[in-house]
Simulated assay, not measured.
Amino acid sequence: MAKSARSAPSLVPAILALIVLVGLAYLLFADLQPSRTEHTVSPPIEIEDPQIEEVTIEPVAPSEDQQAITEKEAEQFVDHLGSKAVTLDGKQGEFVRKDGTIVIPKVEKRDTTIGQLLADKSLSPDTPVTIEYTETEKQQTTIQALDDSTEDKNTIVTIEKADGSQQQSPLIDLINDNNIDKNAQITVINKQAIQKKTTIGQLSQSELSPKQAIHAEIDRGSIELSVNDIVKSGGLDDNALFYLHRVTEADRQGLWGIIQSGLIQRFRQGLTLEGIGINKDLVRVTIPADADEPLPTGLSSFLGKILNNKVESSYIYNYTTSTMGHNPDLIYPGQQLILIHFSNDELKQIYQFFADQRNEQAQTFAIH
């Protein structure tokens, strides 16, 4: 059988493909050509180079370093620390200048009754007195009324029974007691602490019962002392400073504790001074409570050395007998005045030492 002749391939598809490729190449070439229209400007614009004005920068003066600021604070603090007239009420020690005066209020304290106080012939009608007592009031009410009017259900309620005895219970226990009639009448005793400043004459005309128990503080005037007369030291400048403290029952730590707590309290309280620094008028420094403890090496601390020296050189003046003592182990509440001499330089060193510690801690905190 004769084979059929193979048909020749058509050129049409190839021609069409070539036409498509040529078209795509034209489009791509046209997109790559920049489109720009040039215009001739008449007259032409001349572009000048900008003139830059020369500015001379003055060097900024360096700010005052922290050490100089601390020294200034210490100097101002000590210069304004003491005064020439100090009144000691036993609540807080004070600093006084050597040429200053000390006023000590004479306050007598008694636990007595109104009747006994008024019977004291040594007291005039004008004698000031402060009395403290507990005022008792009886109120007729019910458990339900107390429940409705009392927010704190744990409040202790004192009830007077029929036989005159008293029962104290938290209100919540009375509310939850199913054996109590919540609407039955009960007598509740309310106690309130009262403090009054008055005179003996006014007290005699009050409605208080002569049997009323009171704590009385009687103002018997004051004692005025000269620091120069007490210390009798001509070798000190009038600008010398003394820390003063009136011995009280609260002084359990002896002379060392008196000086330590006095310095801590006074330096922490600080002084208000104008112009001492930027946005700062209160000048103060914190002395840690354990600053007098020995160092880890066993050596005395900075404050410990100062306190030891001051204990040994302290003045202990008995203002009831006008006698001076120097034994730090013999101090008596109510009749002795402690005087501790500090030079201005010593106080400045104390301020700067603990101010530097504060600054170092602040820098360490900022770094970390």
Rank of each mutant, 00 (worst) to 15 (best):
A5T: 08
L11N: 13
L16D: 14
A17W: 01
L24Q: 07
A25L: 09
A25D: 03
Y26T: 11
A30H: 14
D31M: 11
L32D: 07
L32N: 08
P34F: 06
S35D: 06
R36K: 15
T37G: 14
E38H: 14
V41D: 02
S42E: 13
E48P: 05
D49E: 13
P50W: 04
Q51R: 13
I57G: 14
E58R: 08
A61P: 04
P62I: 12
S63V: 13
Q67E: 15
I69Y: 04
H80K: 15
G82P: 09
S83I: 15
K84E: 11
L88D: 06
D89H: 14
V103M: 12
L118H: 11
S122M: 14
L123D: 05
T142R: 09
Q144C: 00
D147P: 02
D148N: 04
D148H: 00
V157Q: 08
T158P: 02
I159A: 08
S165D: 09
S165M: 09
S169I: 14
P170G: 09
P170K: 12
N176E: 12
D177A: 08
I180D: 04
K182H: 03
K182Y: 00
A184G: 01
Q185H: 14
I189P: 11
K191E: 14
Q195P: 12
Q195M: 15
T198F: 03
Q212Y: 06
A213M: 10
I218V: 13
I218A: 09
I218T: 05
R220C: 07
G221C: 05
I230M: 09
I230Q: 09
I230F: 06
G234M: 11
G234K: 13
D237Q: 15
L241S: 05
Y243A: 07
E249D: 11
D251F: 03
R252P: 00
L255A: 03
W256V: 05
G262D: 03
L273M: 05
V283G: 04
I287M: 01
P288V: 01
D292T: 05
L295R: 13
L299P: 03
S300I: 10
S300C: 11
F302Q: 02
F302Y: 12
K305S: 08
I306G: 02
I306Y: 02
L307F: 02
L307G: 02
N309S: 12
K310C: 02
V311A: 08
Y315R: 07
T321Y: 04
T323W: 05
T323I: 09
I331S: 01
Y332E: 07
Q335Y: 08
I338L: 11
S343W: 01
K348R: 10
I350P: 01
F353D: 02
A355F: 03
Q357I: 06
N359K: 04
H368M: 15
